[in-house]
Design a protein around this nucleic acid. Structure first.
Length: 825
RNA sequence: GGGCGAGUGGUGGAAUGGCAUACACGAUGGACUUAAAAUCCAUUGGCCUAACGGCUAUAAGGGUUCGACUCCCUUCUCGCCCACCA
């Protein structure tokens, strides 16, 4: 008997799969396709446990689908542009390209060592011109449709990365990559008009029934649609209308002051020449110096100042003061609010601080006739309107609608919908990204690079210092370009695209990665898309997944695709931790997959990472579990070897009694494992059921060895075990399958089906309860009549003891499960 | 502040109205061995009991139910996401 020599086995089978092109697929209309995709990695050099987990999950699903008869597309590539390559290039005194390609070849090697079933012919990397050419093409199409535009505005700026950031890339007021506090800067930048699709992006979330609820919620919150009313408050002296946005039109009669954001454009005109002008300007100046993070933090006291101006509340002609305060944000709504201190907690605190007037307009059912001065906090719940003229006595929810309609009639307000979503800022002042294909001409202005001139390639020879602005702007040969329109001297855009642009459509490129005449082949995309199963980290819940949805919708507008949503099903796998912390180089707590592969083999690693926790949960790495995984594989290995030896010497006999139980277990396990592979994805319990099956096969095999007789179920069980395990630990299972005499890969073997008839038992064991407590067990024919069952339950020796001297009130029977005898008293 | 999720043995976890603690790790004892490792066998929530067995336990408290880890209410703790969003 040979040992389980995983190093040899894994190497040989990886070579077999490669040389037989087992995972290279072609479009085939006669077969049902299945597209399984894992989020492609950033080529940082080595794969980490997070990758191992992500890609193992995907690989198991892909291999199962192959055996279930699907034409499976399972590609991989690299999200290769981005800042770390620039930083690494500076550090290692090399070019970003050399560094990146070096990393890619390392990672390819490691991914292959894991035995993943990728179609390597489709491998792509976003830093290659044949890929980013199409980034530029997409950009031009967007430009043509008015969806890519340049504007000057306050942007998020990371001083450490020396670049701008999209709103989605600002996490807790810091840069998502380096956590440096984000500053505000006024810059002229390129934006993509994602807001064009805001309604579709929100509505189509309804189609994503197989996405985790929390991702849907996060996207909904991010898009942030709110229905409300825009109300116009005239300024007393000039009559200038101040538009204010509110979702609480029902509280309009309680508005006792108006607040403008310090950046509000109307403010300047309003205070000019007024007595308080100097103080107000000082205040505005001070706020503008505050960082976003400190201004937005909840525990900082809200500051504000009276402008010296007054507005008229259009519903009751009351003269109310106009303030400016840092708790009102310019980039939401209209940048101005009506303050209702009695019914909004923020206004309540601010009004209290600055002794501003308050009026109750919604009466709480619990505290009628509430006086503002008695309130300790704002009353934000519902109730009946008071102090609200003709709306008095109305329920506040009903009043919302009525007041809105009335104000529209009176032309003092207008119903409006506001979104929180902002257009996507894509300019980055960095080198290692896709050049934005635009030329600036003194005569013609912004001129897009003609399609025939694509790609605009990144210059190779470049100095990257990490300081002093955009590296591309220093490359004269790159910057100088003739204007495509007039032929005159022009200058290229030196900003590059945010790398999330690259990853927003890579899944489409996989359908036809060699297609050099188009962004992707329409027919191929029609066949392969949409992605049936997408797997990746929760950290992309908003960023990548929102951008990709946007791109899909744009391609639909172009008529290139006919689906609305790119990813049908989404699985967000949990993080792999070490001692409760994220593994990172700086913490020095990295567990290198490569070491684990050398020590235990890829199959053990794959098995363990799936067995340790359900895919969606976080899990804390613990090497002891690796021993367990390895031990299980060795057990299976030995089991199959022993079976083979026995088979050569033993006689076949008809189904012996001890195989009956095994047969039931076998079919139950086929059912369980198939369900998890198909969509349950609880691989941890699927594996435990395979362990149970193994545990049940062992004594039967031992008995067969003693009697030198093998029954048909034992053989079926051993073979099926190997097949069921093969998506998880493919190398070992291939080897075992070969030992069974197969000349083909196990992947060509049809997935087993369970026989429902075999799951029917002749006899069943039921639990007998007295007053809800388990007191005994009873084995009865499966088809026993209820009355007969009751009689036999009461006849049970132990039950008799419990029932003795008491009267039975009622007997509950749950079919195939239990009998509960309820006693009197 | 809002939203979502979680809390089960020494550990990872299983069970989503019906036998709580599957499967595994670890631990303890035993077999094999000169010995160790590996392997195999047994035990393993807590308490009581010589044993049969009993009692008790799923963050805490209450409720619904014949029956609750599971459903409902209250509270606590942790995690994640969003957050002066008007």
């Amino acid at each position: 008997m040979s040992d389980y020599d995983f190093l040899r086995i894994e190497k040989e089978w990886q070579e077999y799969w490669r040389s037989h092109n087992l995972f290279n697929v072609k479009m085939d209309e006669s077969k049902e396709k299945y597209y399984v995709l894992e989020m492609f990695p950033y080529p940082s050099g080595r794969i980490h446990m997070g990758h191992v987990r992500n890609y193992t999950i995907g690989d198991v699903i892909a291999r199962y689908r192959m055996q279930a008869g699907f034409n499976v597309l399972h590609p991989i590539g690299f999200d290769a542009f981005g800042q770390p390559a620039e930083n690494a290039a500076i550090k290692h005194k090399t070019g970003p390209k050399e560094w990146t390609e070096n990393c890619i070849s390392w990672m390819v090697k490691e991914l292959k060592q894991m035995g993943f079933s990728y179609d390597w012919d489709r491998e792509l990397s976003t830093h290659r011109p044949q890929y980013y050419k199409w980034n530029q093409w997409i950009f031009l199409k967007m430009f043509e449709k008015g969806l890519a535009y340049k504007k000057s505005s306050g942007v998020n700026w990371c001083a450490s990365c020396e670049t701008t950031l999209a709103n989605e890339e600002v996490v807790n007021g810091g840069c998502w990559r380096c956590h440096t506090e984000v500053e505000q800067k006024e810059l002229d930048q390129w934006y993509l008009k994602i807001t064009e699709y805001q309604d579709a992006l929100l509505e189509d979330l309804e189609l994503l029934n197989d996405w985790p609820e929390r991702v849907i919620t996060m996207q909904k919150n991010w898009i942030g649609k709110s229905y409300g009313l825009e109300i116009y408050f005239p300024e007393v002296d000039t009559g200038t209308l101040i538009p204010v946005f509110t979702t609480r039109a029902d509280t309009i009669f309680g508005a006792t002051y108006v607040v403008l954001a310090p950046e509000h454009p109307l403010l300047d005109e309003m205070i000019k020449g007024r007595s308080r002008e100097k103080d107000v300007r000082e205040f505005i100046e001070r706020v503008s110096r505050e960082s976003k993070i400190s201004r937005m933090s909840a525990d900082v006291k809200k500051e504000g100042i009276f402008t010296g101006c007054f507005a008229v509340n259009p519903v009751n002609y009351e003269k109310i003061p106009i303030w400016t305060a840092d708790y009102v944000l310019m980039d939401y709504g209209t940048g101005a609010i009506m303050a209702v201190p009695t019914h909004d907690q923020r206004d309540f605190l601010f009004a209290g601080e600055h002794r501003l007037p308050m009026r109750v307009v919604i009466q709480s059912p619990n505290t009628p006739n509430q006086l503002p001065e008695k309130m300790t906090q704002a009353y934000e719940a519902g109730g009946i309107l008071v102090n609200s003229a003709q709306f008095d006595g109305m329920d506040n929810e009903a009043a919302k609608e009525k007041i809105a309609l009335w104000m529209e009639e009176e032309k003092i307000g207008q119903r409006k919908v506001f979104f929180r979503l902002r257009d996507w800022l894509i300019s980055r002042q960095r080198y290692w990204g896709t050049p934005i294909p635009v030329i600036y001409c003194r005569q013609c202005g912004i001129v897009p690079v003609p399609e025939k001139d694509l790609p605009v390639t990144l210059p190779d020879k470049i100095e990257i210092s990490g300081t002093g602005g955009s590296p591309l702007s220093k490359v004269k040969e790159f910057v100088d370009a003739a204007c495509p329109k007039c032929g005159g001297p022009g200058q290229r855009e030196t900003d590059t695209m945010a790398t999330f642009f690259d990853s927003s459509w890579y899944f489409l490129r996989y359908c036809s990665p060699q297609q050099n005449e188009a962004v992707f082949d329409k027919q191929e995309a029609k066949y392969w898309m949409t992605v049936d199963q997408y797997i990746g980290g929760i950290e992309h819940a908003v960023l990548h997944l929102l951008y990709s949805r946007f791109f899909a919708k744009f391609f639909r507008t172009l008529g290139l695709v006919d689906f609305k949503e790119p990813f049908r099903k989404l699985l967000t796998q949990g993080m792999v931790l070490k001692d409760g912390e994220v593994m990172s180089k700086s913490k020095g707590n990295i567990v290198d997959p490569d070491e684990m592969i050398k020590k235990y083999g890829a199959d053990s690693l794959r098995l363990f990472i799936l067995f340790a926790a359900p895919p969606e949960a976080e899990f804390d790495w613990n090497e002891r579990g690796m021993d367990g995984a390895w031990r299980f594989l060795t057990r299976v290995w030995t089991l199959v070897q022993n079976f083979r030896e026995l088979k050569q010497a033993a006689l076949t006999q008809p189904l012996p009694i001890q195989e009956k139980e095994l047969e039931f277990k076998l079919h139950a396990v086929i059912k369980k494992v198939t369900e998890e592979m198909k969509g349950g994805f609880k691989f941890n319990t699927a594996i435990s059921s395979l362990m149970e099956l193994t545990n049940e096969i062992m004594p039967v095999l031992r008995r067969a060895e003693e009697t030198k007789r093998i029954g048909p179920v034992l053989e079926q069980a051993v073979r099926t075990l190997v097949i069921l395990l093969s998506p998880i630990t493919p190398h070992m299972c291939e080897e075992l399958w070969k030992l069974f005499g197969s000349r083909e890969s196990i992947i060509k073997t049809a997935w087993p089906r369970y026989d429902p008839a075999k799951l029917q038992k002749d006899e069943i064991t039921l639990v007998l309860q007295v007053n809800g407590k388990v007191r005994s067990k009873i084995t009865v024919p499966a088809d026993i009549a209820e009355e007969e069952l009751k009689t036999r339950a009461l006849d049970d020796t132990k039950i008799k003891e419990w029932v003795k001297g008491k009267s039975v009130k009622k007997i509950f029977v749950v079919k195939n499960k239990l009998v509960n005898i309820l006693l009197e008293g």
